[in-house]
Design a binder for these strands. Structure first.
Lengths: 204, 204
DNA sequence: TACCAGAAAACTAACGATTGTTAGGCCGTT
DNA sequence: AACGGCCTAACAATCGTTAGTTTTCTGGTA
């Protein structure tokens, strides 16, 4: 959003493997998902980076919560970007809803670590940041609900309760992160289409 | 299981409002859901009980993790009890599956705090207890999958992938705990039947 | 009813461990 | 020489838990 952040991102991406800071954030992402934010210590992150003490990390970051905050924003950006692309497309209402659901699920499957922060660990953000986060997330979900509304108006969806339909749809989609793992029996494409179709059939 | 425990339960239930130990467990349940297990200190629990220090709790309990363990088992027992009642009934396959889904959702809605432990906080159990927990939970979900299998064999469900169907169904049902609150616009009965029907229609 | 002994519950202070974070020094590269 | 990256040690705060003491409750005796 700000010039500051944009500058950081450009500088950080000058070498191929990602800046040291990005590496730290990746390590934190995985630990935050597998153990949880509070159960992950700075020394755990340092261990994963093969550093011998949590203090070494502070040459690159300002604090533990900053990592959580950056990951949460990363996830939000990914969901918005995928959704915006769908919203720009010229499709009939139900097709657009289906595309949005598939896009949503694909973000989850391609970013399982960040998704864990987006769905669970965000509550450990500071008060101010937590409010910012939920505001953006609620807006995202509201746009999703708008697509369902359009589908009902269009007549393709017969479900009566719009609010329930949105909660049900997002709940069913988000649950994927609990069991999907890359390299499993079903491909990401298969999981995405099967899930989106199951939700759509459920609302018809 | 042991005489000890049975005696405790009998003694603990002699007064109307529940034993002090039960009150502590209730307070812990709510805090574990709203803040998370690791973010809840013994002093937080004591505060909620209007006690002036975490030490006071140890006249009634052996340790913090015991609270988590008891709540997790409580939740497991509730799910099993509801499922067993359905399994005993003499119903056609799809009706039985539908009844099991409704029963499952109703346990979640009537025990939101315990459900949070069942779905999220259990991972902070000790290694041994965590293994015991997941074993029981997996068995419960396997029985659920059996009902879906029966529905497919019966011909009422047309979904091809049995494993996916089970994961989708449970995921959609479990998501309810994220937004349902007692006293809301929709009654528990409405939410239960609407959700079960949406899932069934999705698998047909 | 008044009393008292024993138990149960709660209070307070302290413990060792772990937490996030800081500061100062060391080493290799530029 | 200067800098970035890492190491080590230490800090204050907070954690679960323990121990010792005091308060409160309970039930039987006078």
């Amino acid at each position: 959003m700000t010039d500051e952040i944009l500058t950081d991102q450009v500088i950080g991406s000058t070498n191929g493997i990602g800046s040291r800071r990005d590496q730290i954030r990746s390590a934190a992402e995985e630990l935050f998902r597998t153990r949880g934010y509070l159960a992950t210590s700075m020394r755990n992150i340092a261990d994963k980076m093969q550093l011998s003490g949590g203090g070494s990390l502070y040459a690159h970051i300002a604090g533990k919560e900053d990592l959580l905050w950056e990951i949460a924003n990363d996830a939000i950006d990914a969901f918005y970007a995928a959704q915006n692309e769908v919203l720009r497309a010229d499709l009939p209402p139900v097709e657009k809803l289906r595309a949005a659901m598939i896009a949503h699920v694909k973000v989850i499957m391609s970013r399982l670590d960040a998704a864990a922060v987006y769905f669970d660990e965000w509550r450990h953000l500071s008060d101010e940041r937590r409010t910012q986060f939920t505001t953006l997330r609620d807006e995202y979900e509201k746009r999703f609900e708008g697509l369902i509304h359009a589908g009902i108006v269009d007549g393709a969806l017969k479900i009566g309760d719009e609010r329930f339909a949105a909660l049900y749809a997002l709940g069913a989609l988000n649950a994927i992160r609990r069991w999907y793992r890359p390299g499993g029996r079903l491909s990401a494409d298969q999981v995405a289409t099967m899930t989106a179709d199951a939700v759509l059939n459920g609302l018809r």
